[in-house]
């Protein structure tokens, strides 16, 4: 079953046409990777889904509902949470407060505290640092916090924007292993934007490669890893 469908999505920043007709299908329970170079439109795609960027044409459909024109606020309440690029931790809020803000749109107190326990178990480092200010965490810890904060919304779809950015390989592997675990245990659908094609395709079932605002290649992750064009352009020599 398709959870999220983008049809011929277009978006612009002023005169720059960042998306020029992007179509994607994200199946429920899948981890889907979106690859591409800087400026290919990966982040814009995520921002359009979460309502930060308004599409100029095309359709965004989530669980049969049209998202075009909704505010980020309404979209979160439908079950889409974002782990933003650069993590965007609230620096002057403690780790615990950051997590609490992830659940802002919810009011089921007992379930929120269950999710909090689950997240602290997934990321024990966050538990140790619960009272520290977000700004004092290391990059890897901030990424864990950003993911934990996204999970606190208990989303049906988790959008991750460059979770590997600026992190050491061992921490990247750790974070992706955790994401897989969440995907498998909770059947949580994930859409992961990544420059690191190798790690992204290893941990996803399907992939889209964007080039200047269009989908250039799409396919099952295993096939994309064998695809000559993808290897040459995005996986290094």
């Amino acid at each position: 079953m398709t959870l999220l469908r983008l049809s011929n999505l277009e978006a612009s920043y002023g005169a720059v046409r960042a998306l020029q007709g992007v179509s994607m299908d994200v199946a429920e329970g899948a981890v889907v990777a979106v690859l591409g170079a800087n400026g290919a439109g990966k982040s814009t795609t995520l921002k359009a889904i979460s309502g930060v960027v308004k599409p100029t044409a095309g359709e965004i459909e989530f669980d049969g509902k049209r998202l075009n024109g909704m505010t980020p606020n309404q979209i979160v309440r439908l079950g889409i949470a974002q782990v933003p690029e650069g993590r965007k931790i609230f620096k002057d809020l403690t780790v615990a407060e950051n997590l609490r803000m992830g659940a802002y749109a919810r009011s089921d107190k007992a379930e929120i505290s269950k999710d909090l326990d689950m997240i602290l178990e997934l990321f024990p480092r966050l538990s140790e640092r619960a009272k520290q200010l977000g700004g004092t965490l290391s990059g890897g810890e901030q990424q864990m916090l950003a993911i934990g904060r996204g999970l606190m919304a208990r989303p049906r779809l988790l959008l991750l924007d460059e979770p590997s950015l600026g992190l050491a390989p061992i921490i990247i592997a750790d974070i992706f292993a955790t994401l897989r675990k969440i995907n498998e245990e909770k059947r949580m659908t994930m859409l992961v934007v990544e420059q690191n094609a190798n790690i992204a395709l290893k941990n996803s079932s399907f992939g889209y490669v964007l080039q200047v605002g269009r989908v250039a290649v799409e396919g099952v992750a295993g096939d994309l890893r064998q695809n000559k064009e993808v290897i040459e352009s995005y996986m290094g020599a």
């Binding site: 979460s50 930060v52 505010t71 980020p72 606020n73 979160v76 309440r77 974002q82 933003p84 965007k88 609230f90 620096k91 002057d92 809020l93 803000m101 992830g102 802002y104 749109a105 904060r149 919304a153």
Partner: peptide
């Protein structure tokens, strides 16, 4: 701290 991210949290 960050109004844009706050909006993303709902």
């Amino acid at each position: 701290d960050d109004p844009e991210t706050a909006a993303l949290m709902g």
